[in-house]
Design a protein around this nucleic acid. Sequence first.
DNA 1: ATTATAATTGCACATTTGTTCTATGTCAAG
DNA 2: CTTGACATAGAACAAATGTGCAATTATAAT
Lengths: 220, 220
Amino acid sequence: MKTKKTKLLERQAQMYAFLSDYINTNGYPPTVREIGEALDIPSTSLVSYYLKGLEERGLIDRESSISRGIRLVSNPYQPSDFLTGSSATLSIPFLGYIVASAPIPVEALDGTETVEINRALFGRDVNGLFALQVQGNSMIDALIHDGDTVILRHQDRVENGEMAAVWLNSNAETTLKKVYYEGARVRLQPANPTMEPIFVPANDVRVQGKVVMVIRQLSN
Amino acid sequence: MKTKKTKLLERQAQMYAFLSDYINTNGYPPTVREIGEALDIPSTSLVSYYLKGLEERGLIDRESSISRGIRLVSNPYQPSDFLTGSSATLSIPFLGYIVASAPIPVEALDGTETVEINRALFGRDVNGLFALQVQGNSMIDALIHDGDTVILRHQDRVENGEMAAVWLNSNAETTLKKVYYEGARVRLQPANPTMEPIFVPANDVRVQGKVVMVIRQLSN
DNA sequence: ATTATAATTGCACATTTGTTCTATGTCAAG
DNA sequence: CTTGACATAGAACAAATGTGCAATTATAAT
């Protein structure tokens, strides 16, 4: 069993390395057949099999039925190197305010307001990002101050330990906490290590987005 | 003659901008058909025609017969400048780490490391800025977390109520606090409104810089 | 008005390419 | 040794996709 698993993971790692390399060299991703040829995998379906594994592990994103539709999620090589000059700046839609007493808004107030951030500050995956400004000091246990700007990625599930904006049904409030799934319950841990976690039933929390960045601007 | 040429060039520029944008968003280049749809070009051969033009002008590279085989060559026009307006990027020198137990360093470790931030995020005065990364949780009362990046402006005096990095002689430590001059003494107020201020003699504090921005990057 | 050139259309065609399905091989655990 | 999950092959198929070409229209120069 160990041999099998490691073999698979090794193959996947090899494949991921090849993907990075190919994309960096060519500027576009390879086809399944090209991957197969490079790694001596004679069957396209086996390549698909591995790709599916990589996708499940969250290392790549794919668009189905799209040729060369592979995107690296966390790319150590920074493919934007050869995209020099092309939008070094990200325009992240500003959706309004986040307050404890209401769920986060789902769409932009007027659609035009954005927050401009350097793309270099983000990873490869810049989809689903949006920005909110914190109103009030209710998120102080997340080390977040009145007026801070929080940048989130829209997703309804996060990995253990990641900071997320969660809506608590029974409390009817939005809060920013580190989320740990512990069976039927969820542990919500304040970012401030001196503060105690709270525990809520798993079906009581709705993750509204993952916190990717916090920006505090003071008087300049 | 003029009309024709500019029309063509305009279309090509438009196409180049779309290519940049698409690649940045998706991680792989578009197909000729996708380009056509995006730019309202109803015929694939016309898209090809434009692409050939872009290639001849050296703006893109293509692999023939390869789907999505478009690669951007370095862009002389910097289209992002047009798209995002004055999106010049500030390179702020990264001076190292700020810890409670030492004064902030005065010059860069190696001179090369910088933090790239959008100029738009700052006020008009962008002189004397430098960046430090916070080590440890000793600044938690300033709502600053281990690993946060703090951007400061080098100055040895601040206005009442501004947040500053101050060195306390008697305590031999650096701390981030809001500073209020109250005659012969100075009140140092934590950013966290639930916490109590401390009072020190005016000649005991040395302002090392004003805090202009705090950036917290989480897993992206 | 004429004409040459640029721009455009529409379509057919040949590949390229992702997916699926069935059959077969492998290996560790019981 | 048998079993069941994992791993692999191979081929066939449908869809995606680049290319070529003949015909048509627009534009600017003569």
